[in-house]
Each structure stands twice: as C-alpha cells, then as structure tokens.
Amino acid sequence: MADENGSNLKQFTDGIVNNNPVLVQLLGMCPMLAITNSVANALVMGAAATFVVVMSNTITSLLRNLIKPHVRILIFTLTIATFVTIADFLLKAFVYDVAMKLGPFIPLIIVNCMIICRAEVVAIRNGLARSLADAFGIGIGFTFALLILGVIRELLGAGTWTFPFPIPGIAPEGFIQIMPSSFADNGHNWVIMVLPPGAFLTLGVVIGVVNWIRSKSEGGA
C-alpha cells in the first residue's frame, strides 16, 4: 500500500474497492453493526467518519517529520479525539435527531481502528496529496459499506429508506416508502433485521458474498 508505486487515483479507488476498510480489511466493525439499522444513520456516520479520517490524515501527514516514533500512537489518538469532538458538536448543531440516535457511537469514532490504521500505514510516511487521496478513498469506502448494510436492514426491517433531512421532490418527509405500507402495518416486516442479531447475520452474509465475488474475479484473472 504505502510502498507500492501507484498514482494517487489508485490509492483513492483502492480504499473503496480492493482495500475497503470494512468488507475486506474487517476494520471499524463496531459502528458498522451498531448504527446501520437505518439509511439516515449510515449516511451521517459515514460523513462524520470521513471528516475525521480526512482531518487526521492531513494533520498527521503535515507533522510526519516532527512526530517521534514512540509517541506516535498517542499523537494519533489525541488528533483523532480532537476532530471527533468537533464533529460531535457539528452533528448536534445540524442533524440533532440523528446525532441523538447515534449516541455514544459518534465519540466512539475515536477508537475506530480504521482511522488509526490509515494514520499509521499511510499518513505518517506520505505527503499531503497522497494522504488526502487515501483518506477520501477510505472514507467513501466506509460510507459505501455502511450504506449496503443500512439499505438491506432498513428495507427488510421497516420497508423504508430514511434520510438525515428532507429532500424536496424525492423524499419530502425525510423517507421513501419502498415496500407497500401494508408490509409493516400487517406485521410482515422482519423486525429482527433492525435488532442486534440482524446486524451480525447481514454482515456475515455480505462478507461471504464479497469473498465469493473476490475469489471469482481472482480466479478469472
């Protein structure tokens, strides 16, 4: 990754596809499981984590010549904690309802191993451009993985897709009804999908499917 020769563009797309933090590297699983019971939560969480990883990669990359190796983890953690505090205040200011639903999982971005891993693997050894490309790739890849789970779980569990704020034209009330409304009203919805076990089962199946697709494409190449 860091020592591979490749363009910044490749670093960016790697984060989304080949090196997807959740589905391939299996990092940052806690928020992945906990908050994906609705699309709105997944979007807000993805945005917050992207903000934090971009800022932490920027700071780490700019300070990379000043940071002594033995205190680096401490510096990373403090940088991340600072930006998570900022993100927490921003979310509470602009999307209060969703921020309340996410609860402790916003501060828990601090201990998301995905972000510390990017600082350690990429930002501490590379210049600003490459670190930024990597951070955006990883952030978008993370959001993408969250969305896959959010879309499946909310569809089967409630029959809707919610958004953090109303979108005129598409979702004026802040959600789209995908399944007919009789789905949830008559109790045909899979309540288990929005409860904790649904998260584990969906992620298990999604990881299985991703592995299957990867083994197919590697076998074909």
Partner: peptide
C-alpha cells in the same frame, strides 16, 4: 464451512445466533 464464509463470515453468523440467544 463453505469457502467464502470461512473466517469472518461464519463468525458473524454465529455471533448473530448468539445475539438472538442473548435477546
């Protein structure tokens, strides 16, 4: 265990069933 599910996949599925039990 089917090959694509080996490792993380099957562990998540088992965790799901455990989580059901804890419910």
């Amino acid at each position: 265990v089917p090959k694509p599910l080996q490792g993380a996949g099957i562990t998540m599925l088992v965790a799901g069933i455990l989580s059901l039990a804890f419910m």
